[in-house]
């Protein structure tokens, strides 16, 4: 299944891009996807990273073809 990933803040910097489309194994869970990307891009403080699926944060859903998954770090500048 094809899934679009969007990265924000420092995660986009770690990834070197703000968006990519991945071909994922059918049945891959959201948690597995998160762990995989955190490892791939060596994202720090993974516990604070929030995930949104199709613009809904903290949504424990099954991934499906065409989903958009956003990786959101907290930041506090002002």
């Amino acid at each position: 299944m094809k899934v679009t990933l969007k990265y924000f803040g420092v995660i986009a910097e770690s990834a070197g891009k703000s968006e990519e489309v991945l071909e994922l194994e059918q049945g891959l869970s959201l948690r597995e996807l998160k762990d995989q990307q955190i490892k791939t891009y060596q994202i720090q403080d993974a516990g604070s990273v929030q995930i949104a699926v199709n613009q809904n944060l903290n949504n424990e859903v099954e991934l499906k073809e065409g989903d958009e998954v956003a990786f959101l770090p907290p930041f506090a500048g002002g």
Partner: peptide, 18 residues
């Protein structure tokens, strides 16, 4: 509700530039 856990890596505008 948005960020129940935070990060130690606070980066201010002074540090990152803006």
């Amino acid at each position: 509700c948005l960020f129940s856990k935070t990060t130690r890596q606070n980066v201010s505008c002074e540090a990152t530039g803006v």
